[in-house]
Write a protein that binds this DNA or RNA. Sequence first.
DNA 1: TCTGGGGTCCTAGGACCC
DNA 2: TCTGGGGTCCTAGGACCC
Length: 425
Amino acid sequence: VRRQVLACVDCNNFYVSCERVFNPKLARAPVVVLSNNDGCVISRSEEAKALGVPMGAPFFSVRSLCEAQGIAVFSSNYALYGDMSRRVMETLERFTPEIDLYSIDEAFLDLSQLTDDALVETGREMRATVLRWTGVPVSVGVAPTKTLAKLGATIAKRSPKSRGVVNLTNARHAEYALARTPVRDVWNIGRHLAKRLTTAGIDTALQLRDADERALSRRMSVGVGRTIFELRGVSCLPLAVCKPTRKSVVCSRSFGRSVETRAELCESVAFYVSRAAEKLRRDKLAATVLVVFVSTGRFGEDQYSNSAVLSLPVPTNFTPELIRYARRGVGRIYREGLRYKKAGVMLFGLARASNSQGGLFDKVDRGRADRLMQMLDQVNARMGAETLRYAAAGLRRDWRMLCERRSPCYTTRWDELLILRLPRG
DNA sequence: TCTGGGGTCCTAGGACCC
DNA sequence: TCTGGGGTCCTAGGACCC
């Protein structure tokens, strides 16, 4: 078997770090970033963690704590985080083309070509380079499998002594780390599995590694079996250097206020369809199934949620056509007298846009439709998102989600560039 | 005596990840 | 008053295919 060494590079509280890059006053201050619609806390600086802000806490429940402690609070700014992610990943790509971009703030790199004594040094160099070029601090774990590398990165993040890099290629070091890791902290062991494992007497990652793999595969899931092998240093999760094309596109939002009329619901759904269709076209895909869904709040009275599935006769990414079907879908599931809090669309059955099969009775001139969408996308790319948009997606849109504490899009909008004032003299 | 093996699809919901 | 969004994979048993 060929020796494999992977690095997991994980950005430290990524969204908070992005905000800090352009706002040095936040450097050692407590900072949190909220989810869409200013709903929950989804990123916390170490200082905010120390002040007792829990991950995932609804903002209303920690709002007074934030105010009392002077914690800086930001709405999500995905334009900024997406662009910063691109910079981090492009920096990492300088180290090796064998890189698996796992999420907005994480990547796995193949370091099998390096000798053992070069591993930690390379990890430190990656860390220093990303910090210097992008301003984002990262943690690095090095190990023979993804699961162990990920664990290494988590430990690196928590222990200052590691200076950001943890090497678990050595079997004794790995065993030491596994013995001190609760099973719930293992990648792909979530809340439910952790509970079932603890009930079965498996509390640490080391106990999981040494458990009966066949029995647990059968009793829990094949995923658990894979995790056990991964903890033993036997790779089951290959490096995905070439991502397979996506299988679905989703666009949905909670409303900033509740929505009751069919007209406004249609408007919002048309807006989500426009965004979803843009994603399709960016990936050169076309959809054959459209799902529209609506729901009231999850916590109050009068709960309702429903969805409508519409099959599209010809694979399409043509916005007005998708809007037509989506409105039909809303008509099927809309109930009067309810306070809707969320709506969205999903697209499935994705095929490559170029070689889609035409329909015998197709009424749309596909050539013209493609040219129109291409023009629309070009104008919006050049002049700013939504310079051209469909009126069906609403003009006022006062149902839009809250984002009252959003930072400027420092890196993606000319009118929001950071302005520096130099001191005199 | 002795009755294959490997694959896909279906469905809705659940689990997991960030 | 106020609780995110976008993904992937797995499950289970039967139907169906070669």
